[in-house]
Simulated scan of single mutants.
Amino acid sequence: MTVRRVAVAVALALALAGCSSATEPPKAAAPVPSSVPVTAPFKGLRPTSVKIPKIGADSSLISVGLKTDGSISVPSVHKPMQAAWYQLSPVPGDVGPAVVLGHVDGDKQPGIFYKLKDLVPGDEVDVDRSDGKKLKFVVDHVTQVPKETFPREAVYGNSDKPELRLITCGGVFDHAAHSYKDNIVVYANLANA
């Protein structure tokens, strides 16, 4: 695993420990130093939207980076229908696992990835990019994993083909921690390479 991938894996794991309506970053791990702003306009090639017809998910994509505490910046819980692309992961369509995040809920309403757990192999995910390309990914498999045993290598490890990871929270809501106990991860492969 490259140094960049390790930093990505640590940052995403930290961020996902506090998804849903949590407003504080997780405190369990040491911060990852970063000069990346919380959310910065991304001037290079980037994905602009994600659409998942089966579950009615359709969102523009904002670009997010790392917060100063090393966790990933996620869309505001006050805008739970907004999805985000993690700009330190590959651009969808490039080799490697591109990462798209979305809330399962927020502000007491369903989020953009509320039904993500309902996807099955063969379902399609459409991603548009700033260069005009329209990409189609096909779901390979979906997992629900406890946050304590998040499979970092399987989710963020290098690959030799364009892949997509869709990530949200799931499972039981822990009211004391203000967070869900699990993550839902969708693994998808580029169909129209």
Score class of each variant (00 low, 15 high):
Asp128Asn: 13
Gly170Val: 06
Leu135Thr: 04
Val50Ala: 12
Ser60Lys: 05
His178Leu: 01
Ala193Asp: 07
His178Gly: 04
Pro47Val: 03
Gly122Asp: 00
Pro162Glu: 08
Ser89Phe: 06
Ala17Thr: 07
Ala176Cys: 05
Leu61Met: 11
Phe137Gln: 10
Pro25Ala: 08
Leu16Lys: 07
Met1Gly: 14
Ile72Gly: 13
Ala9Gln: 11
Pro26His: 08
Ser59Phe: 08
Pro31Asp: 11
Leu88Ala: 04
Asn183Phe: 03
Thr48Pro: 11
Gly171Phe: 03
Pro25Ser: 10
Asp69Ser: 14
Phe150Asp: 14
Ile184Ser: 09
Lys147Ala: 05
Ile184Gln: 08
Asp174Cys: 07
Arg4Trp: 02
Ser59Pro: 11
Asp123Pro: 02
Asp128Trp: 08
Leu116Ser: 10
Ser76Val: 03
Ala22Thr: 04
Val155Met: 12
His78Pro: 06
Asp128Ser: 11
Glu163Ile: 02
Gly171Ser: 07
Gly18Ile: 01
Met1Asn: 13
Glu124Cys: 09
Ala28Met: 04
Gly171Met: 03
Ile52Thr: 04
Ile55Phe: 10
Gly170Ala: 12
Lys67Ser: 13
Asp118Arg: 00
Ala84Leu: 03
Pro53Ala: 04
Val186His: 11
Val155Ile: 11
Ser73Asp: 13
Val10Lys: 14
Ala22Pro: 06
Asp126Met: 08
Arg4Gly: 00
Asp69Asn: 15
Ser179Pro: 00
Pro90Val: 02
Phe42Met: 07
Ser59Lys: 12
Pro80Leu: 02
Val186Asp: 10
Glu153Leu: 10
Asp131Met: 05
Lys51Thr: 08
Leu14Gly: 15
Leu45Cys: 00
Gly170Tyr: 13
Val142Gly: 09
Glu163Ala: 08
Pro162Lys: 14
Ala13Glu: 02
Ser89Leu: 04
Met1Asp: 13
Ala9Lys: 07
Val185Met: 11
Ala17Phe: 04
Glu24Val: 02
Cys19Ile: 01
Cys169Gln: 14
Ile167Tyr: 15
Gln87Pro: 10
Ala191Tyr: 00
His103Ser: 06
Pro121Leu: 00
Phe42His: 13
Pro33Tyr: 09
Val100Ala: 06
Glu124Leu: 11
Gly171Leu: 02
